[in-house]
Design a protein around this nucleic acid. Sequence first.
RNA 1: GCGAGUGUAGUGUAGCGGUAGCACAAAAGCUUCCCAAGCUUUUAACCCGGGUUCGAAUCCCGGCACUCGCACCA
Length: 547
Amino acid sequence: MKGVDQEEVSRRRGIYFQGFGIYGGLSGLYDYGPYGARIKDKVIRIWKEIMLSEGNIAEFDGTTITHTQVLKASGHYDRFFDYSIECTKCHTKYRADDLIEKMGVAATLDKKWLQDKILELEIRCEKCQGDLGEVKIQKLMFPVEQGENLEPLFLRPETAQGMFVNFKEYYRFFREKLPFAMITVGRGYRNEISPRRAIFRLREFNMMECESYFDPKNEKWVREPDNEIKVTFLTNEGKEIKATSKEAYDKGIVKSQPMAYFFGLALRFYSKVGIDLEKIRYRQHKKEERAHYSSETWDAEALTDIGWIEITGNSHRGTFDLTNHIRSSGKDLYAQRIIPKREEFQKVKEIDYKKVKSEYPDISSKIIAAMKEGKTEVTIDDKNIQLDRFTIEREEKVVVDRESFVPVVIEPAFGLDRILYAILDHNLSSREDSGYAYLKIPYSISPYDAVVLPLMNKDGMDESAGKIFEDLLKSKFSVLYDDSGSIGKRYSRYDEVGIVYCITIDYDTIKNGDVTIRHRDTKEQIRIKIEDIPRYLGSDPWNGKAN
RNA sequence: GCGAGUGUAGUGUAGCGGUAGCACAAAAGCUUCCCAAGCUUUUAACCCGGGUUCGAAUCCCGGCACUCGCACCA
């Protein structure tokens, strides 16, 4: 907090605001307005630019409505529930399954079962010994109707699954070479029990996820982790260390090399979008906090006015997802590795057609059919025939030079809305002298390149400004035009939404053909020729630390 | 989802049974050659629904939303 309320500014200036406001709003749904939508778009672009410039990362754009079988395989369908129970006296809330498991009984995730078990075990409120009420189910996925006689489908609770099920497409795209990764930017949906703090916890949210695939025998990214940016690592043993990603990996703090590599990428990204790296830390999940499938999890957290908030989750998902989809779909989602050539003798079983025909010339086709079905005996015309003796076994020499395996997955999942929350929190400041707010985000995510401002609306300044504005639009710059209010008021207007440059047209413009360009942060102005404006803006002249 | 509290122009607030005021913002005009100046004018609100009452923003009930706490965040 710097004396400026992010939510107030956002509402007032159209960065973000509650969805469906004229109808009283809907909990957990927020819209991005004229400035917010542009900032968001630029943040996405920077992220993609960084990820895609790795060379072995490709983009995926999947649907949000998801095949139910996918969610059954991933575990969401059966586990994405919250069975809660509340004390009727003091209203403390518990998870019903937790209470039962604390009694040393394995819980079955079924409402009636849980309810009965709680009565049977005579479980009472831990705090006040009061009676517990009814078990309530909170479903955390959003169903979507798909037709009269069909089961509802669900909106995806994460973008990851869409990528996993398309693993093979991308495996082919990368010509069957690991490691590679897929990225998706898109929306996810979770029926959060109590969404709060504006865009911090939403029911429909934006994420940018990356699924990277590795041979478990060679879990390394193609490049070394970053060794420049230092950040705080907080281990699950409570150790706090400031280190670069490479150091953290070398010292064994971060076990997974790719994970350490992605930390470096993420830090470059955070820094580029104006997140203060002094307010970033990596916190390792404790065992009990970790998702069931993960062997190593680190959250990147940002310090904001509401404390440390998770902005990116990094999970080592192992082979969990692909194994489940292989099992569930019966399809091949394996990768292959080249191994040293070796010759092997495999036992091959074959049907001895000659023998069958010579012994049972009339019913040979029936016998062969039964053998092909894998039967060991068959009864034809009341005759019981053992089939083993028609099998011949022989050894065959085969050359083996590859083997199949299930790739392991390492997933950095960026919460876009929370990243935007952190960006606003870290950059919304107030001027020391006047107290007015200004948003010191980098030029690269500034909602517009510049604003064109005639100093006054007369003596040809307005015409001149109008022409400069039109020319900039034609040159593909995103610019605004504003001629209302005093010049100081207008500067402040755009300071507040993070626009870096104000181009002011004054009397000298008419005389000399030059304009002043004012910088948001320093309030300093320089004079340049009108024809130099595109070059000046195009050179991305931001020189602050955030670049 | 529970408990407590809150909901008034775009934003921040006053009014708390007699028919909505202020500040900032916004718009028009005048003025002003550079950091929310001044003057004039204007636009604009009682979260939604029901009840009590001659009369409700105000009291009551229900809903919705927000804040905090608990829980949740796989």
